[in-house]
């Protein structure tokens, strides 16, 4: 009996793997009509195969190749003296231009547009969890908090009080753009929930490069409020913090001044 089951399994494997001749295939398919267990196995394997194809769609090769080339060393090396002179000139130029560029919004900066590579929300989240969810900045009042939110997203936002949500503080992030801020919160006592603040413009700018978490591991919920794009990442299926966000009643000058203190 066991031998027969092994034969069926072996035939099934060859059938599912398209290893049978036409005659073998026909004979096997006929045998399936009287074997409900084998039919279930076939259906089961086909469902698994379809799932694997859904789970592993290939990313864009050009994007990967382009990033690799940016990180790879350049081939042509000039003589040392020329290199030194060129480096000095380049440094002076970069310093001069950099002062101007530094103050521009990242989405307007062509260098950052072309070279910036957002890290995945999953990576950013896991790193902060691993580090104990410790903030770089803890705001002392609402104005400071709204100023931080304004600095990242151009909207002065506050988190409405909720007994099950505790705001921990802010850390810098690069999950959307170089100026993303990540708000660390804890929900239901201890569940770490990260909320990424940036502008909707940045989110659209880098949309093709944003990597949302793998399904089933972490959940992402986005809310757009005015100019702001706010993305909540957590293991929870439902958003718990983004829906608590509300506009603060401060003027843009107050928010700008509060953010300038960062």
């Amino acid at each position: 009996m066991r031998e027969r089951r092994d034969d069926i399994t072996e035939a099934l494997d060859r059938y599912l793997d398209n290893q049978m001749s036409d005659d073998e295939r026909r004979a096997f398919e006929e045998s399936l009509t009287g074997d409900s267990a084998a039919r279930r196995e076939v259906a089961s394997q086909r469902a698994v195969d379809e799932s694997l194809k859904r789970l592993f769609p290939a990313p864009d090769v050009e994007r990967v190749l382009e990033r690799a080339l940016r990180s790879a060393p350049s081939r042509r090396r000039a003589p040392v003296v020329f290199r030194f002179t060129a480096m000095a000139a380049a440094a002076a130029l970069v310093t001069a231009i950099g002062v101007y560029w530094f103050n521009r919004a990242p989405t307007q900066n062509p260098v950052i547009q072309n070279t910036f590579r957002p890290e995945s929300f999953e990576t950013a989240y896991n790193r902060e969890v691993e580090a104990g969810f410790k903030p770089e900045i803890v705001c002392k009042d609402d104005l400071e908090f709204a100023g931080a939110a304004w600095g990242a997203s151009r909207e002065g936002l506050l988190v409405a009080s909720a007994t099950d949500v505790k705001v921990v503080g802010w850390v810098h992030s690069t999950a959307i753009s170089p100026k993303t801020l990540m708000l660390l919160t804890r929900v239901d006592g201890d569940t770490p929930v990260a909320v990424f603040f940036d502008t909707g413009q940045s989110a659209e700018q880098y949309a093709s490069r944003l990597k949302l978490p793998c399904r089933g591991k972490l959940h992402a919920h986005r809310r757009d409020i005015g100019q702001a794009a706010v993305i909540e990442i957590s293991p929870l299926a439902e958003p718990r913090v983004v829906n608590l966000l509300q506009p603060a009643q401060y003027t843009e000058e107050e928010l700008r001044a509060a953010f300038a203190g960062w």
């Binding site: 864009d60 090769v61 050009e62 994007r63 190749l65 382009e66 080339l69 790879a72 060393p73 350049s74 081939r75 042509r76």
Partner: peptide, 21 residues
């Protein structure tokens, strides 16, 4: 071959990068 329209730029970069010819 490129699906994103970037392949021309990537090819140009390939032509001047790397440690080999």
């Amino acid at each position: 071959m490129g699906v994103s329209g970037q392949s021309g730029a990537v090819d140009a970069r390939l032509a001047r990068q790397g440690s080999a010819p």
